[in-house]
Design a binder for these strands. Sequence first.
DNA 1: GTAAGCCTTGACGCGGACGTCAAGGCAAGA
DNA 2: TCTTGCCTTGACGTCCGCGTCAAGGCTTAC
Lengths: 132, 132
Amino acid sequence: MRIGELAARAGTTTRTLRYYESRGLLPARRGGNGYRTYDEDDLKLLRQIRTLQDFGFDLEETRPFVECLRAGHPEGDSCPASLVVYRRKLAELDTLIEQLTSVRAQVAAQLTRAEAAVPGGPEPKCELGGHG
Amino acid sequence: MRIGELAARAGTTTRTLRYYESRGLLPARRGGNGYRTYDEDDLKLLRQIRTLQDFGFDLEETRPFVECLRAGHPEGDSCPASLVVYRRKLAELDTLIEQLTSVRAQVAAQLTRAEAAVPGGPEPKCELGGHG
DNA sequence: GTAAGCCTTGACGCGGACGTCAAGGCAAGA
DNA sequence: TCTTGCCTTGACGTCCGCGTCAAGGCTTAC
């Protein structure tokens, strides 16, 4: 299959596939006319990349998974190198979520504090004495 | 005070201050020699910007806070427009944290599944039959 | 033969918040 | 006077994953 079809079947664009090739992540064979040619295995590799990208993995981080599949393993994460990436990503996510949660709490505190001093801010929610 | 001193006192760089000025966020008066001149109020504005930046606010999102201070209010969040930004940011943070938590769970599940099939991966933690 | 629709490479654009370099002006100390 | 260290503007570089032309070639349908 050619680049347009592969892109369509993976729900991405030809530009993206050329970009992956430029990064050495998804090289393509060439037909006699210079057109890129792909097969079903390439589709599988591409889907692996896309899934990880959707999870927020950097492109480089998908490489072990791709190489794992290309080595003949049934899944991209059937290799130790892929598991290392998983674990690192989990740690990164934990750190990030922790930071964001901390920031959220601080912003919420600031908001609460500020609302108590701004006209039209507080808007008592369920106390007596108001119909509008 | 001049740009270098202000930058140092706020823990940032002169480049950053010039950038803020180029965005109209922190304009500076000029001395007879063309040098930028700042006062203590500018330091307060700058600290407000930096605090919000550290929270992950976009530069544009700090503008209401800066204008609030410049309007003479005691705090950058003493104005309704600032509270609107706070609330929007809280919503963004909630969405983001939720997404990241979801991704974390999915990655953790993949890791668990994959570990059960890779040599050297599982490493039973507390079951019988292993001292090394 | 020609228009449509695919493909090719090359190269610039984007967003955000600056970093970094270049070329030069101004002020103060030895 | 010369050096040092601050300051000025201008402009390109960074990171990342592409989007978006531009100019042209191949193939197929009519």
